[in-house]
Nucleic acid binder design. Sequence first.
DNA 1: TTACTTGCAAAAACTTTGCAGGCGC
DNA 2: GCGCCTGCAAAGTTTTTGCAAGTAA
Lengths: 136, 136
Amino acid sequence: MLGVLADAGFSDTRARRAVVSALCESRTGVTPGLLLQQARVRHAGLGQVTVYRTLEILERLGLVRKLHQEDGCSAYAPASSGHGHPVICRKCRSTVEYDGCAIDSVLRDVSARTGYRVESHWLELFGVCPACRRNE
Amino acid sequence: MLGVLADAGFSDTRARRAVVSALCESRTGVTPGLLLQQARVRHAGLGQVTVYRTLEILERLGLVRKLHQEDGCSAYAPASSGHGHPVICRKCRSTVEYDGCAIDSVLRDVSARTGYRVESHWLELFGVCPACRRNE
DNA sequence: TTACTTGCAAAAACTTTGCAGGCGC
DNA sequence: GCGCCTGCAAAGTTTTTGCAAGTAA
């Protein structure tokens, strides 16, 4: 992810490395506040503002995606590919991406029923991850 | 919508009528701030806090749904039925609901590929409404 | 060196809470 | 009349902005 940043013309700084590492190590979505805490383990002097600014860059480059959850819409998770949808465990919050978007038939149905020409969509899935299922 | 409020044990007050009317008349999603402006046409003394509190009730009763858009996640739109998905015009912002959720096959695919047991989902669609298509 | 980055502090925006008075029933 | 409801004011939270100092290239 740092490589992509460099390719896009952004400097390789200690602050950004700390944010990116913390983000990638987290198996769940992280809010800017939590990300600050976790990234400070690597770079004690890190400021909240830099976290916001780094997230903004990463989002613009498509490297992270915002998660929208019951308790807020400010969490971010790494985005594996151009088009994907987060699948979130409601027990442990672990988050993975679903890429094989087999949703075309749904889009056609929406178009047919509403008259809207559908150009994009946003899908998020909630459930229970394999590990949590084993502990049920 | 006011009837449902009464049935659920809430008083029929002037403030709530103003909020509900303004919400129903709007063909797009409305934020709490905008809703205050529009509802004050009917009830000049209305306060922002009451708008928040009314929206909270309506959401709990399933009468309104939150919209998540590029520019924020605090807009609300009337919810037609138990399970539906908003379809939003990116030009005029007009918003309708798509109810015929033909998405089961997608959910099965997600389950198969990620191992997560999918229990619920959240889908939002963006495109161009019939009226805006005619003006293109 | 030069331009991009950073972190602090302050401001702004948004949402929630406490409370005395008002209103529906 | 009782208890729910309201609006103001204040507090809390989150995010953005301005700016001087620091750092990558």
